[in-house]
Design a protein around this nucleic acid. Structure first.
Lengths: 238, 238
DNA sequence: ACTTGCATACTTCCATACAAGTCAACACTT
DNA sequence: AAGTGTTGACTTGTATGGAAGTATGCAAGT
């Protein structure tokens, strides 16, 4: 018997519980804008698509609703939520606050192993060809996780992950918008200041790094107004 | 027909969707230590208790697992998770970071309406009799929400709420441990510094206020070692 | 032409049945 | 008496059927 069902490039392991797997798959598809805002996701349709029953699909929906990625309107349908401008701003704020404190702590204590690890990661980041931002996003993720772990707050990053999805959706839409090299420079500065143990500078470097999305956000919203929930136009009212 | 089913003091509105209601009820019961750590929650049992089928119960379970309050071991049972010491520390860290930034922003801008609102709330807090900490926790919650809202980050508080449940469980266990008057004094200082627009002092006041739980945590863990996941004993290994 | 009413085909939500794993008690063998 | 195998009553995971609400297209009336 085949343990793996491959559909749309996403595989499902039929031996483990299906619900949680679907949650991850759908979550990823939404964040990566494979499932577009406003598009409809019907339970029976997805169930058929993945070769399972409606119940696990439904359970995946529930968690995605809690993460603000789906909206289920009873007896009407389930839809991919448009990006909530407010949610993005709030998520960014939370993330800045937390990561600023993480960097603070790191710069105060200092750790040479950490520094060399980070430097190696930055070298990797520089090796990413300009044309493949997906790879960079992956490395960027790893960079920030490393900081959180080193500060002794790995779980705090887990909390952030849920929040961060709101920001990531924007990143995956804009993609070519952000200049990788600029972000890498900022990473470098953060590491520099941590190494020098200049707490305030390190903190400020992280803060401005995480404020970067604020620059692209208005442009993105202009380019893809339909993807956003709180656009100026109110045409989308029911 | 009766729209309300009252069981164990928790009411269920049969007209709205049952799943989300159960989520709230069970969440509350866990945080308030009505459902104790390690205790077993079987789906059919709760279903019967609330007069619904297993499915909504199950859906409530899923979100509570995501919040780290339940643990479901397939084919074995569903259990109230013990309090994860690490999770508490991480949650506290995140909360301090976020609320520090909130206070920072408030102290920088200033708002007289906010100040008088907060002062009124503090007056209310003072009127709480020493013997009823539940009421104080409620007011404390409101105090912090007010700050978040005023800073324009209401949604950030929603995120915190999920995280905060880990801390709240500790609070509801220790209960008489913390001295209300001390906390109120800290509230007062926070408001004072916001009013005076002394940003650093306000921030520091909030930080030390939120560090308060660190004082009681070791004592609580000593008093109720069975309630914690990362106690020194490793007997609970599977 | 335009509105109104209804039939139909959807949707989610809940209830129920079945499948598969786990655990404990008990009978049986050694 | 100690160990082993089996049975049966549990658990959660999945599948499926029905209930209630919603949108849509069409026919009939104004």
């Amino acid at each position: 018997m085949l343990a793996l069902v491959d559909l749309n490039g996403w595989k499902l392991d039929q031996l483990k519980a299906v619900g949680p797997q679907l949650r991850i798959v759908l979550r990823s598809r939404i964040i990566r804008n494979d499932l577009r805002p406003m598009s409809r996701l019907s339970e029976p349709e997805l169930a058929k698509e993945y070769g399972v029953s409606r119940q696990p699909v439904r359970e995946a929906f529930i968690t995605l609703v809690n993460e603000g990625l789906l909206e289920v309107r009873p007896q009407r349908g389930t839809f991919v939520r448009r990006i909530d401008f407010e949610a993005v701003l709030n998520a960014r704020f939370v993330r800045e606050a937390v990561e600023a404190d993480i960097v603070r702590k790191l710069a105060a204590t200092g750790n040479s192993d950490l520094i060399s690890d980070l430097r190696a990661q930055i070298k990797l980041q520089k090796s990413v060809p300009e044309g493949s931002p997906e790879r960079f996003i992956e490395l960027d993720e790893r960079f920030h996780i490393t900081l959180a772990r080193a500060a002794g707050f790995a779980k705090a990053w887990d909390y952030l992950e849920v929040i961060k999805s709101q920001m990531d959706r924007v990143r995956f839409i804009t993609f070519e918008e952000f200049q990788i090299s600029k972000l890498i420079d900022q990473h470098e500065k953060i590491v520099d200041f941590i190494e020098q143990k200049t707490v305030l500078r390190a903190e400020e470097a992280m803060r401005s790094h995480l404020r970067e999305i604020l620059n692209s956000l208005p442009r993105v919203q202009d380019l893809y107004p339909d993807y956003f929930e709180n656009s100026r136009d109110i045409s989308g009212e029911i």
